[in-house]
Computed example of a mutant assay.
Amino acid sequence: MKKSTQISSLPIISIADGNQVGKVKSLVINPDKGSVDFLTIEHEDFQVSVKAIPFKKVVGIGEFAVTVDSESAVIDLNEIPIANQLVNKKIKITNTKVMTRKGELIGEVIEYFVDQDTGNILGMQLKVADKEVALSSDSVVTFGKDIIIVNEDAASHFLNSVEELDGTAPELVEELTSTVEDEEVRALKEKQIELLSGKTLTKDVYDKNGNVLFYEGTILTPEHVERAQQEGPSIVVELSMNVEA
């Protein structure tokens, strides 16, 4: 289970060649299915048309990146009418008011949660009066652009913890999530070292304080990549976008 904000802005990496396809720009909601069907892509080369990746083409969503088998997973939304229609509906969920079928306003969505394997929206975190609660998508009647409509008895199905949305006992979630994420992070870091080592930087790379971390012309070693990983995901992305063999 992933927060929508954990997916947005992640770099998208092609497993086949280790290239970065771009970054996740937005999550495209299918209101009829209650799912994320596409991830639109932000890339400096994609200025004319909107590019996206069908969620079913996503191999994995880790802490540092979204992975796909190859760049062939990228589609032009103008060539897929259904996908283009979903984008134009502009369903965003976060910051949307929640109302019952009988017109009672019960709160506003703070965040929503996605099954990282299927793209299904598992539920939402709501601000209700002076507290925060979770609500499963089972209670949702309509995901609308301006209002999310839920069953009139939705308030009786509020959950105290968002971890309950995926059906896992709250006391086990932290341990299970930590184990899986640790394995994913280790695998991704090893892959980053493998892909970037031996490549030459084409521009200076700066740390978060504005100091030069690596100079143009540096031939990256595993130690360089590890140092970049310690600085944070944005620095690793900066390296991957500015190297040549």
Rank of each mutant, 00 (worst) to 15 (best):
M1S: 10
K2N: 06
K3N: 08
Q6A: 11
I7L: 08
S8F: 06
S9C: 04
G18P: 00
Q20A: 09
S26T: 07
S26I: 04
I29R: 07
I29F: 09
K33D: 12
G34S: 01
D37T: 12
D37S: 13
F38T: 01
L39Q: 01
I41A: 02
I41L: 04
H43Y: 06
D45P: 01
F46D: 10
V48R: 12
I53A: 02
K56F: 08
V58P: 03
V59D: 13
I61A: 05
S70Q: 05
E71T: 15
S72W: 13
I80D: 11
N84Q: 14
V87F: 12
T94A: 15
T100I: 12
K102Y: 03
G103M: 09
G103F: 11
E108Y: 06
I110V: 15
V114T: 10
T118E: 05
N120T: 08
Q125N: 12
L126G: 02
A129E: 14
E132C: 10
E132H: 13
A134Q: 04
A134M: 04
L135P: 08
S139T: 07
S139Q: 08
V141R: 09
F143R: 03
D146H: 06
I149N: 01
I149W: 06
I149M: 06
V150E: 05
E152D: 13
D153T: 04
D153Q: 01
N160C: 04
L165S: 04
D166V: 00
D166S: 09
T168R: 12
A169P: 13
L172C: 05
V173Y: 10
V173F: 09
L176A: 11
T179H: 15
V180W: 02
V180A: 05
E181A: 08
D182Y: 06
E183V: 01
E184I: 07
R186V: 00
A187Y: 07
Q192G: 03
I193E: 14
I193S: 11
L196I: 11
K203D: 06
K203E: 14
D204Y: 14
V205D: 04
N209W: 13
G210N: 03
G210L: 03
N211H: 07
V212H: 10
L213F: 15
E216F: 02
T218N: 15
R227G: 07
A228E: 06
G232N: 09
I235N: 07
I235K: 10
